[in-house]
Every structure is written in structure tokens, then in C-alpha cells.
């Protein structure tokens, strides 16, 4: 990790590596060799972002289009800030409320946008596989900012960056991912990336929220928090969608909190010094107690937001490094 002073354009360029694939659609587009280098680059961006002047020109003249078919504030702002700091021209399209309602299909939208010649398309969509489909139809790089319940690979990268900065090494960590695994793209991307980097991953949640075949992902599956958290370095809580709590998959929020919500008592079952993560936005008092979420000694939740911008800058910059003209 670099010291937080004088991160120059030169420092960044020295660390710049080309992204291994033309698109970043899933955690599996990374590999165990390039990931640490991307994290190094991310570290540099973290320090850079802490300086008062935050303008770079790595993406100068390039156009980044944020295409969010699902409402999202934090991810779309994070990508927008990341691209702007790299000097790109950014257009954030509120498709959630425009052309889709007029009946345009995803491919129509893609073809239309492609004609406008963007360089990077950042897409979030409620359908699994939407980013993959888009990548086949456009000529620019596509970054998946979350597709259905499939993947959210930049989240996994920023989580890994947060963990590496907190623990120094991620290969020996035991990470518990807790909550609604079934519907979580964050869980799928994190399982893939953490396992790629050698960490042990556990999945904890009620049987109605953990896929029956999740043990075949190479994870240990637990339904009991006490058993599952024993010996864990990181407790990653997932958001529980409110509509899933009214009796369909979980009887009630109070029952969920009683058995699977992270509070001090349950956190004490993990390894001493364990850190808490959450991809946000949090349902306080449902999957996590404010007492834990807001304790900066154990919670990495605010760090994750900061790392989000840095990790996405690393992704955008390394994608542009493939083009070779910068």
C-alpha cells in the first residue's frame, strides 16, 4: 500500500495494467495474477482520491455511458465519479424511467447507444445475463454493474480491496456471507472472487434463502449463525429485500433479526477482531444492528463505499489500457 501523499499521474501510469478481458461481466473475467495488480492500482486510486485535486486524464476524450435499468443511487454515482475523475465524458441514462417504458427492448437500446459510439457501457439490469447479451451487441467495453441475481463483479473487487486493506492478506481469510444468498448477485461474485484468491467462504442463512445446491459452489453452508460464524475473519451481511420477509421466504423481520440479524451477541461468535461488511443499502434492525454497523472499529461498511470509487477507477482505467493509445 502506498502512503497517502503525492499520488501523481505518473504513479498511476506505472501501476496501470491492461484488463484481462474486453468486458468485465463476471468475477471469472479476473484471474489470480491480475487481481492483486488491480488491487494495487485500486490502492493508488484510494490515496489519489484522498488528495484535494482529483483530476486525471487517463480517459480524456472517452465517453462512458451509465445505463441503469434498475434504480440505484450509490452504484451509479460511484461509477459516475470514478469515470469523471479519470477525465471521461460521462452520460448517466435514467433508462429505468424512459425508453424501457416505451417498449424498447434491451437490444434496441444497445444498438441505439452503440451508434453514438461510447467507449464504455456500464449496465445494471434486473435480468440475469443482460450484461452478457449487451456485450455481444455493442462495439465498446461493457462493465456489469449488476445483472439480476447473477453477478456484480465490481462489488466483489471493491470488497476484496476493503478486506486486503484491513487484513493485509486475503488468501488465509475465512469469510462468512450471510443472509439472502439465493437472490444475491453480490454473494455470487464474492464467492467466485474470494475462492479464486484462496479465501474460505461460508454461506449462512435460512434454508429458504440459501440455494439447495450451494454446497457445490465449494462453500460450507450453515443455517445456524453460531456454528457458521465460528472462526470467521469477515462477516459479510447481505440486504434482505423487504418483500421477501412478509411470510413468503421468512416469516417476519423480527424473526429474521432474532436468528440471522447481526448484533453484538452474534458477532462475538466470530473470530476476535472480525470485521463486518455490507454492500448497502442496509435494513437496520433487520439484517444488521446499527450498534454494529456504525462501530468503526469493526465495521468496514463506510470503507467499502470509498473503495467502490477506487476499485471502479481501477477497472475503467485498466479497460482503457487495453486500447493502447493512452
Amino acid at each position: 500500500m502506498t502512503q497517502p501523499h503525492d499520488v501523481t499521474d505518473q504513479t498511476i501510469r506505472e501501476r496501470l495494467i491492461p484488463f484481462p478481458k474486453a468486458h468485465f461481466l463476471a468475477a471469472s473475467d479476473l484471474n489470480p495474477f491480475v487481481t492483486p495488480q488491480l488491487l494495487d492500482l485500486g490502492d493508488a486510486f484510494v490515496d489519489f482520491n484522498r488528495q484535494s485535486s482529483k483530476a486525471l486524464d487517463l480517459l480524456h476524450g472517452r465517453t462512458v455511458v451509465n445505463l441503469f435499468f434498475e434504480n440505484s443511487t450509490r452504484t451509479s454515482s460511484s461509477f459516475e465519479i470514478a469515470a469523471k475523475r479519470l477525465g471521461a465524458d460521462v452520460v448517466t441514462m435514467p433508462v429505468a424511467s424512459s425508453s424501457v417504458k416505451k417498449g424498447e427492448t434491451l437490444i434496441d437500446t444497445a444498438v441505439t447507444l452503440n451508434a453514438m459510439k461510447p467507449d464504455i457501457l456500464v449496465i445494471r439490469h434486473s435480468a440475469s445475463g443482460a450484461a452478457e447479451l449487451l456485450s455481444q451487441k455493442v462495439g465498446c467495453a461493457v462493465v456489469n454493474a449488476g445483472d439480476g441475481r447473477h453477478e456484480h463483479p465490481t462489488q466483489a473487487l471493491l470488497d476484496l480491496l476493503s478486506m486486503r486493506r484491513a487484513f493485509g492478506d486475503v488468501t488465509s481469510l475465512t469469510v462468512a456471507i450471510c443472509g439472502d444468498i439465493t437472490h444475491s448477485r453480490v454473494a455470487r461474485s464474492n464467492v467466485a472472487l474470494l475462492q479464486m484468491m484462496g479465501a474460505r467462504v461460508r454461506l449462512i442463512g435460512p434454508p429458504t434463502l440459501v440455494p439447495g445446491d450451494a454446497d457445490r459452489w465449494g462453500c460450507e453452508v450453515f443455517h445456524d449463525m453460531r456454528e457458521g460464524l465460528a472462526g470467521c475473519d469477515v462477516v459479510m451481511m447481505l440486504r434482505l429485500q423487504l418483500e421477501r420477509m412478509a411470510g413468503a421466504l421468512v416469516p417476519s423481520t423480527r424473526e429474521y433479526f432474532r436468528f440471522w440479524g447481526l448484533d453484538r451477541e452474534k458477532l462475538a461468535w466470530a473470530k476476535p477482531g472480525a470485521r463486518v461488511m455490507h454492500p448497502g443499502p442496509m435494513n437496520r434492525g433487520v439484517e444488521i444492528d446499527s450498534d454494529v454497523a456504525d462501530d468503526l472499529d469493526v465495521s468496514l461498511i463506510q470503507d467499502q463505499v470509498e473503495m467502490g470509487v477506487a476499485a471502479r477507477m481501477a477497472v475503467l482505467a485498466s479497460l482503457s489500457a487495453r486500447w493502447g493509445d493512452k
Binding site: G247, P251, R254, E255, R258
Partner: peptide, 18 residues
Amino acid sequence: ATKALDGQRMAEIGLMDE
């Protein structure tokens, strides 16, 4: 097993068990 025996919404099985 279901709230108000409506056959649709799961009841608080964990808390009742406790």
C-alpha cells in the same frame, strides 16, 4: 405453520419454537 392459517404466509416458526 402459516399466519392466520392462510396457507400462504409462513408463520414465525423459529420464535414459536423458542
